[in-house]
Design a protein around this nucleic acid. Structure first.
Lengths: 120, 120
DNA sequence: AAATAGTATAGACTATGCTTCATACTTTAT
DNA sequence: ATAAAGTATGAAGCATAGTCTATACTATTT
């Protein structure tokens, strides 16, 4: 069980950002009931995995609420199997779409570069 | 020469958003000096091209200031040819990186989907 | 001529995703 | 034991990217 400091070190995500994600419902830590002197929050390995997914999915252009959907589809106990599969399939389609859009923009920019090269 | 209404229709971008982009320095329209009765702004074909680039680059995950860089590298008169080429090359690298990240997230999600399929 | 639709401008407002601050308490290092 | 470092919480602040409102004038339609 890790403290927030350790989470931050292992994922490279700043502590306030981790707290913000937790407050946003992307994961939860646990208070240790046997420890009475403080109310520090402890996090397990699963949280590291979730934070990695958040980091990667964010840099791929997903919003936090889209990422929450993915996490809920993955760990959410109250979601049925077909629903989970449906959500994950949709995400895969979204990713395919994003890749296609990126390739189109790439072509556009390569064209601009070519224009600059021959014209000026 | 087109009015803002027409720009909006041709690009699918709402009028307030077009005004916001113009105010952000992504392009400029011109006032017709021979017309004294109103002060409507007119836009040429180049603006349509810029708006299309903005639309595509945005959905590919670029920020407005990144897009401004691209546009400046494309039309900016005060930027030297080597600088322009350098900016566009950087953008191409950024796009390649984004595509790689997307492919990684795709693998992650495909894995999650597979887990859901066999487990529940 | 009157109603309807289009344009301009400034400013307020919203949502997302943080980031910083203030306060207070706990733990660790020296 | 005292200072430094870590943790918790709530609230404020900030940047980006719009979106909406109010006001006022212009143009078009009927």
């Amino acid at each position: 069980m890790k403290l927030i400091n350790q989470l931050s070190k292992e994922t490279g995500i700043p502590i306030p950002t981790i707290r913000f994600y937790e407050k946003s419902g992307l994961f939860t830590g646990k208070k240790k009931e046997d420890v009475k002197s403080n109310n520090y929050t402890y996090y397990d390995e699963e949280v590291i995995k979730k934070l990695s997914l958040i980091r990667d999915a964010k840099s791929a252009g997903f919003t936090l609420s889209e990422i929450k959907e993915i996490i809920d589809a993955w760990y959410g106990k109250q979601i049925s199997k077909p629903e989970k599969l449906e959500i994950l399939s949709r995400k895969l389609v979204q990713i395919e779409t994003k890749i296609k859009e990126l390739k189109e923009v790439k072509i556009q920019i390569a064209f601009l570069k070519n224009e600059v090269e021959k014209c000026n």
